[in-house]
Design a protein around this nucleic acid. Structure first.
Length: 819
DNA sequence: GCTCGATATTTTTTT
DNA sequence: AATATCGAGC
């Protein structure tokens, strides 16, 4: 029998019934072996019982391992039933991974746990409780683009000047309000200037339209669930009795609504006492029942230093104030890092330390110091990409890395282009993650809109999207007439569409087009009613609407890709259809058929595309934004575009709060690297078609110079200023300020006017020194470096020259050479 | 009603 | 540079 597996318990302990579900006991790990190889803090986090638990998990501290082992321990050692566990993550990918890893530990009974995202958990609850909330269980889910479109319609209906009241900003504001759990009525009461009153009006109409369409937007999903739990004590009771253990991952990314949701589900947080009369009687008997349920055991995991979604309403407050929200909470700090070299960790620590008001944390590793971080200053973004391509080539040739080990990070999606160009040219395999996402592509959204209308005929947003796609002669004017009919007859837009004949002033040709459209939809509805699955319905849509035919007939090369995307969508539908219907634990409704498919598509963004480690293959280089990189790790990481204005982003630079968020983003980026870390920047970068000179990112200066090996410096990057023959940029231009021209097939770099190094004429490239390095000085002779301080390109060193004494030197000017 | 060309607009975005 | 949006003209 393999060690670590056993079949019986200590006789002193009763065997938990959970071990014998489904008949015969299966091989179960001794729960204590779950603690093998863990450090003391991790163990404590796994076994802790009896009070709310906050696990402050630094980057790479084995967070997921702790969470999964904690769940396994709950099941194995504490007799918890799988059905009593609710584990919440932010992404479907994270949820899937967690479930998989728990299943590997405890076997198939893990299936009965709820491991899901905030949104899918809430949708599940809402489908079950939809009746009491006034919509049907087949409600539609509006994503950001749908919300946008609906708000645009609403603003138009209210005759709002789009210049003065931009629908886009209204959408964002409504989203923020919902994240703060402020509903339209409450907001109407507090709006006190012209703009806010208009917003209140738009908010109210927007909500009305959603209800009419039997739809909820992303933010509603959370807010409505909170409202449900607060308004219906018996509903709250059901879920509180059920979920006795609630685990929340990435707690630093929760917004207020999600925070309240966790509180409502857990019960027992401070300030939760139900209303009582003066005699101590409960006002509401259902609340009395609720009050008797002891609070669930709450365990949240997070790292305030990795909070990078404040711009979407996430609030660090939730993690910082956890101990106040849950007064008897225990906090465990995980600082030991199992991912990166000490060099990388020291750099990350040094950067994040500049943020104010943070809980002090010091990542450390029992592992190696590792190689120094490589920095590189390129002439322009092409040079930067070229350097990275060359370096990856070098690493792979030397057998130090496979392409799949390498990730290239950047601040904004637009920066990926140059890397793609260069990688294609030199033949490096790569994959860009993110950017325009699959489910946001026009053709995918068009076709899904058909399916949505078929699933929910009252949903007017997708209906209006496809009413004239492909073009069938129902223009703006015709649409306006239908709308007029709808408001005249006080019916919905979809209903008005069916009564075209009553539309006043509609051209015969338009009316005929609408009728043909109605016939088409009726025919498709017939396909749905015949019991066809999502894949068959999708195929019917593609055929009957002529959508596919139009794309295939097109000469636009883009349309070829579109056909492929639709094929992929059809494949997804087929896959969904053939999935064995996962039985919801204890008969929870699980959506199948068209509504099920649409729900899947609405709640699953495609983070699926992060290249997996495929055992055999050498993998591909991963290109992505820093935001997308959170939670991942790679042996080799290139952090690119390290320039003020790019990263930190220009719009975050004059605001301390936003700058601190950028710094956390830098921290996230740095801590993704396991072994090798590269920091690169370009002196000249073309952004929005305009070339601009960017100074070094302030984050670079925050990394101790001793940790960095400057492979190419700013001095080398400015041809006209350098004396040595370092690097192969444009070639020398004397001392002249060269304009933007072409030299050696590459754009050259004007000399004047950039950064703090301008004016440093004719000196050698700044040496990078580390403590202990031996140097020679033109005047003082041999010396040993005692200390180094200051930012990389402005570093000072303390050097012991023996008989000549110990000198403080500014390396930028000092005539020192490394030996 | 549709197409073309001028004009404005660009962060990040797990759901 | 690339794309979305808008208005004029067919």
């Amino acid at each position: 029998m393999p060690s670590g597996l056993f079949q019986s318990f200590d006789p002193a302990e009763p065997v938990p019934a959970s071990y014998y579900r489904n008949g015969a006991p299966h091989l179960v790990r001794d729960p204590e072996t779950l603690l093998d190889g863990m450090n003391p803090q991790q163990r404590e986090a796994v076994v802790h019982a009896g009070s709310p638990l906050l696990i402050v998990a630094g980057a790479g501290s084995g967070k997921t391992r702790v969470l999964t082992h904690r769940i396994a321990y709950l099941l194995g050692a504490r007799g918890v039933q799988p059905g009593e566990i609710l584990a919440i993550t932010f992404t479907n990918k994270a949820a899937g991974e967690m479930r998989e890893r728990v299943e590997a530990l405890v076997g198939p009974r893990a299936k009965a746990m709820w491991v899901s995202t905030f949104h899918s958990a809430c949708v599940r609850i809402l489908r079950r409780e939809s009746k009491r909330l006034g919509f049907t269980s087949s409600f539609s889910i509006y994503d950001a683009a749908d919300s946008q479109r609906l708000m645009a319609l609403v603003c138009r209906d209210l005759d709002l000047d789009p210049k003065q009241f931009p629908p886009k900003s209204f959408t964002a504001k409504v989203s923020n309000l919902k994240n703060e759990l402020i509903d339209e009525e409450t907001y109407a009461g507090q709006a006190d200037n012209a703009m806010e009153r208009k917003l209140a009006e738009a908010y109210a109409l927007y909500q009305r339209r959603l209800r009419e369409a039997n739809a909820l937007d992303f933010d509603d999903i959370i807010m409505t669930t909170v409202n449900l739990l607060q308004a219906f004590p018996d509903a709250a009771e059901h879920y509180r009795r059920r979920f006795r253990h609630i685990l929340v991952d990435e707690y630093q990314d929760t917004n207020h609504a999600q925070y309240m949701l966790v509180r409502e589900l857990t019960g027992g947080a401070s300030g939760q006492a139900p209303k009582k009369t003066v005699d101590g009687e409960f006002v509401n008997p259902a609340e009395a029942a609720l009050a008797e349920i002891p609070p669930a055991e709450l365990c949240v995991v997070g790292d305030a230093d990795q909070s990078i979604y404040a711009f979407r309403g996430a609030t660090i407050r939730n993690i910082l104030d956890f101990e106040e929200d849950y007064p008897n909470a225990t906090t465990i700090l995980l600082e030991q890092n199992y991912r990166s070299t000490q060099t990388i960790l020291s750099a990350a620590n040094a950067v994040i330390e500049r943020n104010s008001n943070r809980r002090k944390k010091n990542l450390w590793t029992a592992g190696a110091e590792g190689t120094r971080i490589t920095s590189y200053v390129a002439d322009d973004e092409h040079g930067e990409a070229q350097f990275i391509a060359d370096e990856i080539d070098r690493l792979t040739d030397a057998g130090d890395a496979k392409p799949g080990d390498v990730a290239v990070f950047y601040r904004t999606n637009a920066q990926s282009r140059v890397f793609e160009e260069v990688f294609i040219r030199v033949g490096l395999p790569y994959k860009v993650v993110g950017g325009v996402r699959f489910y946001e592509r026009r053709e995918v959204r068009d076709v899904l809109a058909y399916l949505r209308v078929l699933a929910n005929p009252e949903d007017s947003v997708p209906l209006r999207r496809i009413i004239n796609v492909p073009k069938r002669g129902i223009g703006e004017r015709a649409e306006a007439m239908i709308e007029a009919l709808a408001s005249r007859e006080r019916i919905s837009f979809p209903q008005a569409l069916l009564r075209v004949d009553e539309a006043y002033g509609m051209a015969a040709r338009s009316a005929n087009a609408v009728k043909k459209f109605n016939d088409l939809m009726a025919k498709l509805r017939g396909v749905v009613e015949s019991g066809a699955g999502p894949a068959a319905v999708l195929e019917a849509v593609l055929e009957e609407t002529g959508y596919l035919a139009e794309l295939q007939a097109s000469t636009d090369p883009q349309d070829e890709t579109r056909v492929e995307n639709l094929q992929e969508l059809a494949a997804v539908a087929l896959e969904f259809e053939q999935e064995e219907p996962v039985e919801g634990p204890d008969g929870e409704p699980v959506q199948t058929g068209l509504p099920g498919f649409l729900e899947r598509v609405a709640l699953v963004a495609d983070s699926d595309q992060i290249p997996d480690e495929d055992g055999e293959g050498r993998g591909v280089i991963t290109l992505m934004t820093l935001h997308t990189a959170k939670g991942l790790e790679f042996p080799v990481v290139f952090l690119t575009g390290m320039e003020d204005g790019v990263f930190p982003h220009m719009r975050a630079m004059n605001n301390t709060k936003e700058l601190e968020e950028e710094r956390r983003l830098a921290y996230v980026g740095l801590t993704r690297a396991r072994e090798r870390l590269y920091l690169s920047r370009a002196v000249l970068r073309s952004a929005w078609g305009q070339p601009s000179y960017n100074p070094a990112s302030r984050f670079l200066e925050e990394i101790p110079p001793t940790l960095v090996d400057e492979k190419r410096t700013a001095a080398a990057a400015v041809p006209s200023l350098k004396s040595g023959g370092v690097g192969g940029s444009g070639g020398g231009f004397g001392g002249r300020s060269a304009g933007t021209g072409t030299a050696g097939g590459r754009r050259s770099t004007p000399a004047a006017g950039w950064g703090k190094n301008a004016g440093r004429m004719k000196d050698r490239p700044t040496v990078t020194l580390a403590v202990g390095d031996r140097v020679t000085h033109d005047r003082f002779g041999l010396g040993t470096v005692m200390a180094v301080s200051g930012p990389a390109d402005d570093a000072k060193a303390t050097i012991d020259f023996g008989a000549e004494g110990t000198k403080q030197l500014l390396l930028r000017y000092a005539p020192v050479e490394k030996l």
